[in-house]
Each structure stands twice: as structure tokens, then as C-alpha cells.
Computed example of a mutant assay.
Amino acid sequence: MTSLSTSSSSSSVFSALAPYGWDGAWADEFAPFDAEGLLAGRVVRVDRGQCDVVTVDGLVRADTAFVTPHDPLRVVCTGDWVAVEATGNPRYVRTYLPRRTAFVRSTSSKRSEGQVLAANVDFAVIAVSLALELDLGRIERFLALAWESGAQPLVVLTKADLVPDPAGVGHLVQDVETAAPGVQVLAVSATGGDGLDVLGAVVSGGTSVLLGQSGAGKSTLANALIGEDVMDVRAARDVDGKGRHTTTTRNLLVLPGGGVLIDTPGLRGVGLFDAGSGVGQVFAEIEELAQDCRFLDCAHVAEPGCAVLAALESGVLPERRLDSYRKLLRENQRIVAKTDVRVRNELRREWKRRGAEGRAAMEAKRGKRAWQ
């Protein structure tokens, strides 16, 4: 009788949670908590120490006090699979299951803490409005965080209907593809429906997080994918294309064609957080060139035998790409150095070395002028 009831219970959990991404691997992870009488559920929204969790009993409100550590990377987040108390008022989240992926950015605080935007994500959909001039550097920044999270990035160029020349859309897609090696780039129009079938097919394969600046058309895109107006939408300003933050929390929504979508508020700042491998993946061609440099620790600045600089001089490598690569690497090093003593000491030695080289060069120049 016990095995029959357990089998029935497992079947109910699968039927209730499968649309939200529940699978056999999650069931195995949850087994110890199931034995304790806790309910499995996925966090669909977090708000001030409480969260909405979808469970076999439906949507329940739960308190996160038991899992609010000092480390901001370990707080409960939208997309987490959690173990919730079966009864109680309030109910409490007892723990969350180990995350498969996590999209993390640096906070704006001086402590350089990380902030988890979404957990257990398969696709990171980066929305970029074609109503504004493309900022390839910002796209590369989003891509670095996406690759670092473990999710597959996808760049969606929204508001394609606002581009006067249809041929121009193709050129813009090509421009973004040069900044996003190995990443699919789609141009869509949420109002006209162009490209939505392709996007819907991609995101039906798992959990997607929708990212981008305010005014990029994320909420409109979310509504188009869901097939109804579930997200508030307001017009962007004509002067700069920016809109107000109509989405103020991260919400997890089930898509009718399959898959799950996490919509996020517009991101004003997108700081890197220990995203070295993500930066390397965005600039894969530079990392590949660097393997042919004469020195293993080549900084690609003025070293002899630098394959990266040779590619720059020959025109194979665009100067904008190298500048963006250097900028993101420096930023990431600074973030890591604030929490890693070894990296901080290495940076100080590098600054001293470069300072000494600069002073030596100035002295040599002065000496040369004195002889003239």
C-alpha cells in the first residue's frame, strides 16, 4: 500500500511540475526531502523575503527566512527548485536544490557582491531594441555573463518593424553576429509576429531568462510568446528609446508551446562578476590568436611576437573587438581582485611593472632629447 501511494504521489508531482521543468534528475535530488514530508516546488517570484512557489498543491506563498544566508549568491531566486513545508501559516522554504546554472551579475555596491538574477536557466535571451543604435559592447557584456552562467545565449533584436529598410535588418543581424560568435541572432517583431515562430521553437526546449535594458521590448516579447497580455507594457520614450520599469520583479511563466520564461526588470547596470571564462568565450577568436603569441603571459599591448597585435595590424581583428576585450578583462580582474588576495597582489605587481616601464620610457625619451 505504501509503495502504491508513493508511486501515485510521484506521478502527481510529475504531472503538476513537468510544465515548469521538473524531470527525473530533479526528482532524484529531491528524494531525501520527499522522505521528510516536504513538498517540491519551483519559485516563480521572489519579493522581500517571501516567494511564490508552484507545487503539487498549486501556488503557495512561502517565507525564505530559513535560507537567507549572508552570502547574496545563496539566497532563494526565481527559477530555484525548493523544498517547502506541506503545512503551516506561514509555510517556510527549507532549502533549495543545487542549481544547474545561475545568471549572476555584480551589484552596484562597493562591496562587489554578486546578485543572482535567475537560476536553472537553459537559455539566456538577450533582448536588444532596433529602435536605437546598436551598442555592440553592451551586447558582449551580456554575452559574457550568459556564457559564464552555463546557459546558452541567444540575441533577439526586437522592434524589427521599426527599421525602415528590410535589407537593413539583415545587415544589423550580421553586425551582431560578428560580436557574438557561436550565438544565434534573431530579428523579431512582437507586433507583426515576424521571427516569433523561430524564437518560440528555441525557448520551448527548457527554461529561458529574458534580459535587456528597460525599453528593449521584453514585456511585449513575453506577451507575444505567451499569447496573452500578462505583462504590463508601456511605450518607450522617443528621445532615447527607454521605458519605465514595467516589470519590477522576476516572474516565471509557462509558455503554451512548451518551455518556461523568466522575465526580468530592465537592467541599467550589467557588471561582470567573476566572468573570466565567459569573456574568453565571447572573444574566442582573440583567445585563439593568443595561443600563437611568443610569450605565454602576453598582454597584447606592445610585446614582440604578439599574434593578437599582428592580426590587428593586418585588419583581421577589428580594433573595436580588441578594445572591448581589454575593457571587460580589466573590469573582471578588478572585481575578482576585491575578493581574491592572490589576484589583487598580481594586479599590483603588474601595475608596478607597467609604471616602471613607463617611467623608463619617459627617461629614455628625455635623454634622447638632451643629446639632440
Rank of each mutant, 00 (worst) to 15 (best):
Thr2Asp: 12
Ser11Gln: 15
Ser15Ile: 00
Leu17Asn: 02
Leu17Cys: 06
Tyr20Thr: 04
Tyr20Met: 12
Asp23Val: 12
Trp26Tyr: 10
Pro32Lys: 11
Gly41Lys: 01
Val43Ile: 15
Arg45Cys: 08
Asp52Cys: 04
Arg61Ile: 00
Val67Pro: 06
Cys77His: 10
Val84Pro: 06
Thr87Arg: 13
Asn89Leu: 09
Pro90Ala: 08
Tyr92Glu: 03
Arg99Trp: 09
Ala102His: 05
Phe103Arg: 01
Phe103Gln: 01
Leu117Lys: 03
Asp122Phe: 05
Val128Trp: 00
Leu134Cys: 10
Leu134Thr: 10
Leu136Tyr: 03
Arg141Pro: 09
Ala144Leu: 09
Leu154Lys: 06
Val163Leu: 05
Val163Gly: 02
Pro164Cys: 09
Pro166Gln: 07
Pro166Met: 10
Thr178Cys: 07
Val183Leu: 07
Ala187Asp: 02
Gly193Arg: 08
Val202Phe: 10
Leu211Trp: 07
Gly212Trp: 02
Ser214Leu: 06
Leu225Glu: 06
Val230Phe: 00
Val230Arg: 15
Asp232Tyr: 04
Ala236Ser: 15
Gly243Tyr: 04
Thr246Leu: 05
Thr247Val: 07
Leu252His: 00
Val270Phe: 14
Val279Trp: 03
Val282Ala: 04
Ile286Arg: 00
Glu288Cys: 03
Leu296Thr: 14
Ala302His: 11
Pro304Phe: 09
Leu309Pro: 01
Leu317Pro: 06
Glu319Arg: 15
Arg321His: 15
Leu322Pro: 06
Leu322Met: 12
Ser324Met: 07
Tyr325His: 14
Gln333Pro: 02
Asp340Asn: 15
Arg344Gly: 12
Arg348Gly: 01
Arg349Trp: 07
Arg366Thr: 03
Gln372His: 12
Gln372Asp: 11
